[in-house]
Design a protein around this nucleic acid. Structure first.
Lengths: 145, 145
DNA sequence: TACTTAATAGTAATCGTTACTTTTTAAAAA
DNA sequence: TTTTTAAAAAGTAACGATTACTATTAAGTA
């Protein structure tokens, strides 16, 4: 976990971005749950609790920069944004199953795109999204309804 | 197109909802582009232009009711909601390819779920989302970049 | 036509997010 | 180490989509 933060910090340095204590705190917070999506508003609340008077703009700006660097993955599901730390910077294309109870993320192998491209002759497919929602096996076992 | 509105109106009646001129206008507006997603804010602007002083709340409440009735499909992509008229009330599960230029929607047959369920032993899959983005064949042919 | 209740208007608030300007600070240079 | 400078953060305040709330209006029914 600590080395994950260090790896992320190296990415910042490599792009000539400054290592501030605020950014380090943000990264270590996100690092704590590498397989869960976290509301940006939760991160915002945590940071402003940690650094009273910290600016919203700083937090959202850093989230955006982390995303540009591939350090976090963002997902917008309705009204607010959620992000998760991306441990495996190298890993490529994948999709998620997201537990609605605990937020746990399970990565899925294989991409469904292959089955659909031939249904759109002449079109130029530029992106896609595939996500599954429900309860993870742990929550089902725990009897969550 | 006109009969699509009438069909939708029948659905309203069947559920004992009142047929107001505002609702009729909303439906006919949505009916004009049955295969395109429309920003709710555009609908909002159109309605308030048509009925000056019309309340935002009325528009958003009706959108929600139309959605509950299956008359429109909603899709949230970031900051604002988009909806499209659902002509085929009876048709079941399907997914979309959405042109980023003209907003045209192409329905895809077959659902990728079947290929993934077995990757999540013990989990309870409650929903999923699959969407593809890009340029439709028409826009590609027209030379849109 | 009169009645009943859902629907609308009108106003204002909420809340996540962002713009802007000044001040601070990390990192590089001297 | 000290100085420099460019980037980051603080500290407002605003924006924009959406919603709550209450009084008023109008659709559907007797």
């Amino acid at each position: 976990m600590a080395e994950d933060v260090n790896t992320a910090v190296e990415v910042l340095q490599k792009h000539h971005l400054k290592i501030t204590k605020q950014r380090r705190t943000m990264l270590s917070f996100l690092c704590q749950r590498p397989d869960h999506y976290t509301d940006v508003t939760s991160l915002d609340a945590y940071m402003r609790d940690f650094y009273p008077g910290m600016s919203h703009a700083t937090i959202y700006r850093n989230v955006k920069e982390f995303e540009d660097l591939g350090l976090v993955e963002q997902q917008v599901n309705g009204d607010q944004a959620r992000i998760k730390f991306q441990c495996d910077f190298a890993n490529m294309h994948h999709h998620h199953f997201i537990c609605r109870n605990c937020g746990k993320v399970t990565e899925l192998t294989m991409c469904p795109m292959d089955f659909f491209a031939n249904q759109l002759p002449g079109a130029q497919i530029e992106g896609h999204r595939f996500e599954m929602y429900g309860l993870c096996a742990d929550c089902v076992a725990a009897g969550v309804e």
